[in-house]
């Protein structure tokens, strides 16, 4: 059984084809990488999966259910959470609030019950706080829970964004360049962290990554995109030596032709 399946997904923006006939199948428990040069269409894949864009062609299935063109919040509710390439925390709110907000989609109490603070809502609020605090403890941010999210150092903001995504209780976690802007040591810590949460929260992880060593280290499978097309897919070692991948990253030596 596949957890996520994309069949022949194409995304056109006017005359530009950002993604062409993209196929993907993720099995539960996998960590899969998506790589490729700048502008290859990697983030478009994420935006199509999470419902930010509706694909021009093709279908997307999550746990055997079609989710093509569904509203982003419903897709998140179904169990797909994401982080963003350029961190998108609720900067003006506290660390704790950021995580609490991600619990909101599971809230059962209605608007009036929450406004009147009825007992049912109070219990849910207490549970949300407990779970948020546990999550923050897990990612090592519990002491900073009252700090403004935007004031945290970069690495911690990345962690908070992952914690916030975990709070939605996902089955599939999409990480968009989690190691961007990190030095090798930080990237190494992050790799270990991702592996830990993967087992701990029983997640399937699909990540976009430029850092080749991170991708190689962590992923069981890697897909490589260039100009919206899949140019390679397979085990890290195979992909690394693939001629088209090398060309896509380094360019073709035109003198050698013929």
């Amino acid at each position: 059984m596949s957890l996520l399946k994309l069949t022949e997904v194409t995304m056109n923006f006017g005359g530009l084809t950002a993604l062409k006939s993209f196929n993907l199948e993720l099995a539960p428990g996998e960590i899969v990488g998506l790589s490729g040069p700048n502008g290859a269409g990697k983030t478009t894949v994420f935006n199509v999966i999470t419902g930010v864009y509706e694909p021009s062609h093709g279908q997307i299935f999550f746990m055997e259910q079609e989710i093509t063109g569904m509203r982003p919040d419903l897709i998140t509710k179904a169990g797909i959470a994401r982080t963003f390439q350029n961190i998108r925390l609720f900067k003006g709110l506290s660390v704790m609030e950021n995580v609490l907000i991600a619990h909101h989609l599971h809230l059962k109490a209605n608007y009036l019950a929450a406004m009147l603070k009825l007992p049912g809502y109070r219990r849910e609020e207490r549970e949300m706080r407990e779970r948020s605090l546990a999550l923050l403890e897990r990612v090592g941010l519990a002491d900073l829970r009252d700090e403004q999210a935007g004031a945290l150092p970069y690495g911690m903001q990345r962690r908070l964004e992952i914690a916030r995504a975990l709070a939605t209780n996902p089955k599939l976690l999409l990480l968009d360049e989690p190691a961007a802007g990190m030095n090798p040591k930080e990237a190494e810590d992050l790799t270990a962290f991702i592996k830990e949460i993967q087992t701990e929260f029983d997640l399937t992880i699909f990540l976009i990554e430029h850092h080749m060593d991170v991708v190689m280290n962590i992923s069981e499978l890697i897909y490589v995109l260039d100009y919206g097309m899949t140019i390679a897919g397979g085990k890290p070692a195979e992909v690394q030596n693939n001629q088209r991948v090398i060309e896509a990253y380094l360019g073709v030596n035109e003198d050698v032709e013929d």
Binding site: V52, D73, T76, L89, L93, I101, H103, M115, Y121
Partner: peptide, 24 residues
């Protein structure tokens, strides 16, 4: 309340709020 936090989340970043499952 939780609804109030959701409103503030929309103010801070609509895209992120929607990605966190908030029905805009």
């Amino acid at each position: 309340s939780s609804y109030g936090r959701a409103l503030k989340a929309i103010r801070e970043d609509e895209t992120a709020a929607e990605a966190m499952g908030i029905n805009l």
